[in-house]
Nucleic acid binder design. Structure first.
Length: 445
RNA sequence: GCCCCCAUGGUGUAACGGUUAGCACGGGAGCCUUUCACGCUCCAAGCGGGAGUUCGACUCUCCCUGGGGGUACCA
């Protein structure tokens, strides 16, 4: 089995493209087959080497690997010319100067549902000769049988007048030469498939098996795009999602296995079957991705989480800092707003200060907490901090939050933070006392 | 316009001729609780419409409606 994935090399690996890549990869790897990349790099404006490289990076981040060197369409011009010549000689294709306007005029005369048929000329673009009778049937692994009557099909242009080839022709020839057995792509290609099938037919070659995936939409049901937020895997990565979570979520967009929602890569490879892919379009729902990402995040060891946070924040994140936030964040990006105070000092949130210090006895509680913490025995760990702070609560006959919130405000500057004992212990005694003093002083009295 | 695909709660899906239509996200209520979360319990919410076929349709057929794609000398 040889499966191929053809990303559109525009720099950003679109989420829909990523899912297609994933399904190709699962199909290939799950069956001990090979995955080859075919790069449609004929649009030099967008398909720059840098953009192609970005696509490869994004695939690598997702953990999708491929076999051998990618096939670049632009590098196969000579082979394409040869096949063109062959079709021309066999009478399966012909040159024609007919333009889109000519095609329209032809339809005006023969009816809209009537496919365009041209007369062979000495020059012009090359069109594939579509038989007048009969039909081409697409046997799709996901959709079953779709029939296209030849009478409805225009003779497709397969090469421009300048000799450069067009997609529907090139893709068929390239896949043929690469020995591709399975083509899994977006449903937007379903209508193109008969044209490609006709190329194989004209060549007397057997086509690969096809599987057309339902398209992905944004939350509003429209085509997924920038205005829906993250639309590419690069953006997902920047937003702090884990590749394993993205992979799992993407797999679930159009496919599933029973009641399972969390599936490891191994399970995905073992259970995935293209035949089971849904036929209806799916919407990309970031809320579910966030939830799933949180699940994966909480599974990481503190050291591993710290490593990923360090990479994402570009700051050295200690394992302890990572650990105390682990069950409170859903993405890597959630870490800094929650724990940045450990690194850069308390946040400046006047409203929070007002709310917490405005309560009766808040400053006294804070002062008392300071004294207890100053006198707490070594080691200054979570247990010691808890003991000290709980003692303050008891001594004052107060509610826990009457003591904890002022301390939280002092060290974090906000009313939201990781556990107070953990946070204080992580900050250390010296820094904690310094921050409490600073707040006490700043709040006057 | 023409060709083609699709249609289960807000979202992703399961059920493949006979189930009280299942699971998950999200939403609501509650428990837990030092904030925020996590976790746990419970609740609301669905077969687009109409004809058939059948003893029996979410499941099969047709029509309609709605959504999507294609219709390039783009990929």
């Amino acid at each position: 089995m040889r499966v191929r994935f053809a990303p559109s090399p525009t720099g950003a690996l679109h989420i829909g493209g990523a899912r297609t890549a994933l399904y190709n990869w699962l199909l290939a790897r799950g069956n001990g087959g090979e995955l080859v990349l075919r790069v449609e790099d004929t649009d030099r404006e967008r398909s720059t080497p840098e953009n192609v490289e970005q696509i490869f990076d994004a695939l690598g981040w997702l953990g999708i690997d491929w076999d051998g060197d990618p096939v670049f369409q632009s590098r196969r011009a000579e082979r394409h010319r040869g096949v063109l010549e062959q079709l021309l000689e066999a009478g399966r294709a012909y040159r024609s100067t007919a333009t889109a306007d000519d095609v329209r005029a032809w339809k005006a005369q023969h009816g809209d549902e009537r496919g365009f048929r041209g007369e062979p000329q000495e020059e012009g673009a090359i069109r594939l000769r579509v038989p007048d009778e009969g039909e081409t049937v697409v046997e799709d692994l996901i959709r079953g049988t779709t029939t296209f009557r030849h009478a409805h099909l225009d003779d497709p242009v397969i090469a421009r007048a300048d000799g450069s080839v067009l997609y529907n022709f090139a893709v068929a020839v390239d896949d043929l030469d690469a020995g591709i057995t399975h083509v899994v792509r977006g449903e937007d290609h379903l209508s193109n498939t008969p044209k490609q099938l006709l190329v194989y037919e004209a060549l007397g070659e057997a086509p690969p098996r096809y599987a057309h995936l339902p398209l992905l939409h944004g939350p509003d049901g429209r085509k997924l795009s920038k205005r829906h937020g993250a639309a590419s895997v690069q953006e997902l990565r920047d937003a702090g999602y884990l590749p394993e979570a993205v992979r799992n979520y993407l797999a679930l967009l159009g496919w599933g296995h029973g009641d399972d929602t969390k599936l490891s890569t191994e399970e995905l490879q073992r259970l995935f079957r293209v035949e089971d892919v849904a036929r209806n379009p799916a919407r990309f729902d970031e809320a579910k991705l966030r939830w799933l990402n949180g699940l994966y995040l909480r599974e990481l060891s503190p050291d591993e989480l710290a490593r990923r946070l360090t990479e994402h924040t570009q700051r050295q994140v200690p394992a302890q800092a990572a650990q105390i936030t682990q069950e409170k964040i859903q993405t890597l990006a959630d870490f800094w707003p929650l724990a940045g105070f450990l690194f850069d000092g308390p946040a400046d949130d006047p409203a929070a200060r007002e709310r917490v210090l405005g309560r009766d006895g808040a400053r006294d509680a804070l002062a008392q907490a300071r004294a207890e913490l100053a006198g707490a025995p070594e080691p200054f760990d979570v247990a010691a901090v808890e003991h000290a702070l709980r003692h303050v609560v008891e001594a004052r006959g107060a509610k826990p939050k009457d003591v904890f919130q002022p301390v939280r405000l002092a060290i974090a500057g906000t009313t939201v933070s990781p556990g107070i004992f953990e946070s204080v212990a992580t900050l250390g005694r010296e820094e904690t006392l310094r921050r409490i003093d600073a707040l006490l002083e700043a709040s006057g009295a």
